[in-house]
Write a protein that binds this DNA or RNA. Structure first.
Lengths: 182, 182
DNA sequence: TCAAAGTGTGAATGATGGTTCACTTCTTTA
DNA sequence: TAAAGAAGTGAACCATCATTCACACTTTGA
């Protein structure tokens, strides 16, 4: 349901109906809507974080630029494949309790990037910078490019969008992107 | 009221009370809550866009890097001075009608950056890139760093946050930031 | 001066949607 | 098999708000 209409399109009555169960039954298993959807967000977000971390880990030993690229591409492809879900997980207005889950996972994305960037700075591959600040800004940039209101919601070639985003991220950490299409 | 508690903390009853007027009277002047707050957002956002554009324009003739820096610093200082308002204007969940206003102004921020970046690319100062994609990502990065959930909400020195953000933006457009504090 | 138009009022209306609860099935366990 | 507990039910409850409207007052303009 989150993939289809997001949090707002999922009132408890509909949740129950989809589950083939009465409203009261839902409350036998979850104390409140907040708790229920906090769990939904937790599971769904974990999948995404794992995917991105695996993407970055698959390039272990490669340059920081390669690893950032791998992580961003993995994340971006999944986000574009299910943009509604990505938006729900990253940006859609939700309950405070659910928002807390979101914050936790946004931190996770950030942490994945912080590790890679800090490694790159330590090894001298990347110029001096505050890895935390860079990672925070990158998360914002990626989110906006993928699901933000300025994102090319349709029309634009998804692969081109991803390539531009990757180039941006590479430059932002202080390297030259491989090839650029103006 | 938006600066204090945001959109949700501004029911029409409270709006009327603050205005020293009855609820019905508010509806003599605005057809709906959406319209009223669309106007509020429009006025407030226009102030911010104007400020940022002026910041960037004040450095007319300077390098693209200088102009981006001026715009970002202007925007960031104002955002940090009234973070609640900045969040409300940039990211807080609102009505669809109000969201439309927001989208319009996010585009305006983007456009300010697109102009500067495109100039820089044309003049050869900046490396080849898609100015639109870069500007979109920058808006996301700036938003996240200033009012996003990953932003250092307290504790961190605001000026240090701004400096890190500026460095990020300079690198992201393809230049070397002046000096860097790791 | 006196309609007509403009403005003010705030309790009542209506829609939405989360949550409860008295009651009815199952399922487990001794 | 029979009590105890778990799970199911959905109409009713409650809270929140945007919005309306019948009536009163004030200003405008001829």
């Amino acid at each position: 349901m989150i993939s289809e209409g997001g949090y707002v399109a999922a009132p408890m009555a509909t949740v129950a109906e989809r589950a083939g169960v009465a409203v009261g039954s839902v409350y036998r298993h979850f104390p409140s809507k907040s708790d229920l959807f906090a769990e939904v967000f937790r599971e769904a977000s974990q999948r995404e974080v794992d995917a991105m971390a695996e993407g970055a880990a698959a390039t272990k030993g490669a340059s920081a630029a390669e690893r950032v690229k791998a992580g961003v591409v993995t994340f971006a492809r999944r986000a574009l494949a299910n943009r509604r879900l990505a938006w729900a997980l990253l940006a859609e207005p939700v309950d405070p309790a659910v928002e807390a889950e979101r914050l936790h996972f946004r931190h996770s994305y950030r942490d994945v990037l912080v590790d890679v960037i800090a490694d790159g700075v330590r090894s001298g591959e990347l110029p001096g910078q505050d890895p935390g600040a860079t990672a925070t800004a990158l998360v914002g940039a990626i989110g906006e490019a993928m699901v933000g209101p300025l994102s090319p919601t349709n029309g634009a070639d998804p692969e081109a969008t991803i390539e531009s985003l990757v180039n941006f991220c590479i430059r932002a950490i202080g390297k030259e992107p491989a090839h650029v299409n103006a």
